[in-house]
Simulated assay, not measured.
Amino acid sequence: MKKLVKPLVLLLLVTFSFIACNSKTKQNKEKETALLTPQKETIQKAQQEYQVGARVPNDLVCMVNNAYMGKPQIQVPVNGKTYYGCCQMCVGKLNNDETARTGIDPYSNKEVDKTEAYIVLMKKEGEVAYFEAEENYNKYKESH
């Protein structure tokens, strides 16, 4: 009988440990889902709010890739103005390359500082354009 007690106790301990581990895994997955769901909804909401042709906030645009990213970007202060980049490479480029901080207005063909631009989502893939003002964008729309 004593020979059966030890293996039975060991089997119970292993079973209990297995159940406890699975329980924690399930709880962690539920927590992860709860934490990720609001973020996904926020990103989806942001993408729904900004359709092609809509003005987008500066902080949701990577100003190096000229792309709407759908979430806040890294702030890059340069000469008293705040630019935005999506990664450390973009941060470096905005800090060191003046041409990364300017764009060309598609209507007037004039150079415009990206922090002062009227930024519009041009394609559903995220491409943006920088206009001197909303008026320029409206004239651009009329002509295209």
Rank of each mutant, 00 (worst) to 15 (best):
Q73W: 06
V76N: 00
N96Y: 02
L60A: 04
A34E: 13
L60Q: 06
Y84S: 07
Q44W: 03
Q47R: 13
A54G: 13
N65S: 13
C62V: 09
P38K: 11
Y107A: 14
T33Y: 00
K93T: 14
V91C: 04
K40E: 12
K93R: 13
L35S: 06
E41D: 13
C62Q: 02
P57S: 10
E30L: 15
V78L: 02
M63C: 03
T25W: 02
Q51T: 13
G85L: 05
K40A: 11
A46C: 11
A46F: 04
C87K: 00
P106Y: 09
C87R: 00
D97L: 11
S23Y: 00
T33K: 00
P38N: 14
Y84Q: 05
P72S: 12
A20M: 06
V56F: 07
N96D: 10
C90F: 01
N58A: 15
E30S: 15
C21N: 09
C21T: 08
T42R: 09
D59W: 09
N79I: 08
P38F: 11
G53I: 10
K93I: 15
M89F: 04
I19K: 00
Y84L: 06
Q51N: 09
M89I: 11
A46Y: 03
C90A: 07
P57H: 04
C62P: 08
V56G: 11
L36G: 07
I43N: 05
V78P: 06
C90S: 06
L36Y: 00
E30Y: 07
T33S: 01
A20L: 11
N58D: 15
Q51H: 02
I104W: 09
I104V: 15
G53H: 01
Q48I: 14
V78A: 01
K45L: 08
P106K: 07
V78Q: 00
C90P: 04
G103V: 05
G80F: 04
E32P: 09
Q73G: 07
R55C: 12
Y83R: 01
G70Q: 10
K93D: 10
D97K: 07
K40D: 12
C62M: 07
K40C: 11
V56K: 03
K24L: 06
L60W: 03
N22S: 14
K29L: 13
A34N: 10
D97F: 06
P38Q: 13
G92H: 08
D105T: 11
M69P: 02
K24D: 12
Y84P: 05
V56Y: 05
L60H: 03
V52L: 01
L60V: 07
V56M: 08
V64A: 13
A67Q: 07
T25A: 10
C90R: 00
A100L: 01
L36C: 06
Y50V: 09
L94C: 09
Q44F: 04
V76I: 02
N65M: 13
A20S: 12
R101W: 06
Y83H: 01
C21G: 08
Y68S: 02
V76R: 00
C21Q: 05
V56L: 13
G80H: 03
V91P: 02
P38Y: 11
T37P: 04
Q88L: 10
K45V: 11
R55A: 14
Q27D: 09
K40R: 08
G70F: 06
N66L: 07
E30G: 14
S23D: 03
G80R: 00
D105N: 09
Y107E: 15
K93L: 15
Y84E: 04
N79G: 08
T99A: 04
K81L: 11
Y50T: 10
L94A: 06
Q44T: 13
N65E: 14
Y50G: 03
I19D: 04
